[in-house]
């Protein structure tokens, strides 16, 4: 109708800033990331230092969040766990959203056998109880001596492998609707090849969904790692993540609450903030539609 003079990006920012929960969430996330990055300088202890004077001690001046059974400083452990959880969340989110974008867009654009095959693989991966399989592989690597450093990478790969399917389905259905637009037909009749159309016209037009999806995948991955860790299938000692700390702490919750309270607060804050930012992004990108990709 009448041209809108407001710049699109400005409008996005204005809409996002209107959502106070999301803004607070963003501030918390940034703070947490900063804390995680400068973590080693925030504590006199390294996360794997053992204080032989303090086994399972409640919070004190020296150990503000107490110590564990093996005399490690909870504050240092929490900082380290936060960093690991953030890395896992981000890497899994970026990888799985990328896979979802590529598979979903190509399947929808080309259709035919490739689409049927992709959908079948998606179905198969959904039918396999991912939790069990990740646990299977993770428990094996936990048992093996090589654990430690390599195990969290394995975990990232497994979480990615079983984390992209629902997003791919959403990408596919969105691509199908973007494909209805005449600018896609026009591009085809201009002589653009399929992959170019996908990269230049389809993916940019579903970018908002991809950003939202990646955001929610961050919290999804952190939650998944936490759940696995509760059963001992997560990041393996001596390395640690928030999930691992939380899993250990939950078992001794009534007797030694300090092992639980710190990691639990941080992880709930983190996930809540990420989810809030995801909601804020969705409202900003797509104020008309209230339909969400994931509940």
């Amino acid at each position: 109708m009448v041209e809108t003079q407001t710049k699109p990006k400005r409008l996005l920012l204005a809409r996002f800033l209107r959502n106070k929960t999301a803004v607070v969430g963003l501030i918390i996330i940034v703070t947490l990331i900063v804390i995680a990055l400068i973590g080693p300088w925030l504590s006199p202890f390294a996360y794997n230092d053992v204080d032989r004077q303090a086994y399972l001690k409640p919070p004190s001046w020296q150990h503000p969040m107490g110590t564990t059974q093996s005399g490690r400083d909870m504050w240092a452990l929490t900082l380290h766990g936060l960093r690991k959880s953030l890395v896992i969340g981000l890497v899994v989110a970026i990888l799985s959203t990328s896979i979802a974008a590529i598979v979903g867009a190509f399947a929808a654009y080309y259709g035919g056998w490739f689409e049927r095959f992709s959908l079948w693989i998606i179905d198969l991966l959904l039918v396999i109880p991912s939790f069990l399989l990740i646990a299977l592989v993770a428990s094996n690597s936990a048992g093996s001596a090589s654990g430690g450093a390599s195990s969290w990478w394995l975990l990232v790969l497994l979480l990615t492998l079983f984390g992209w399917m629902l997003s791919a389905r959403v990408v596919r259905s969105l691509t199908l609707s973007v494909k209805q637009n005449e600018y896609i037909t026009a591009a085809r009749y201009m002589g653009l090849s399929g992959p170019k159309i996908i990269v230049r016209h389809i993916l940019p037009n579903i970018a908002s969904l991809l950003i939202i999806d990646a955001t929610l995948n961050v919290s999804g991955a952190i939650l998944a790692e936490t759940s696995l860790a509760y059963f001992g299938f997560g990041v393996q000692p001596p390395d640690t993540s928030l999930g691992t700390l939380l899993g250990d702490g939950a078992r001794q919750l009534s007797s030694f609450p300090w092992l639980f309270a710190g990691p639990a607060t941080i992880i709930v804050l983190l996930i809540l903030s990420v989810n809030a930012v995801g909601d804020g992004l969705r409202d900003a990108f797509d104020p008309g539609s209230k339909a969400s990709g994931k509940g």
């Binding site: 929960t21 936490t226 639990a264 709930v268 809540l272």
Partner: peptide, 24 residues
């Protein structure tokens, strides 16, 4: 909306454990 977001952001075992502590 905020409570729902909170509910989805807390790992379920944390909710269960906290309930247990409260019940005790």
């Amino acid at each position: 909306t905020f409570l729902a977001l909170l509910g989805l952001s807390i790992p379920s075992f944390v909710i269960a454990n906290l309930l247990q502590v409260a019940a005790t």
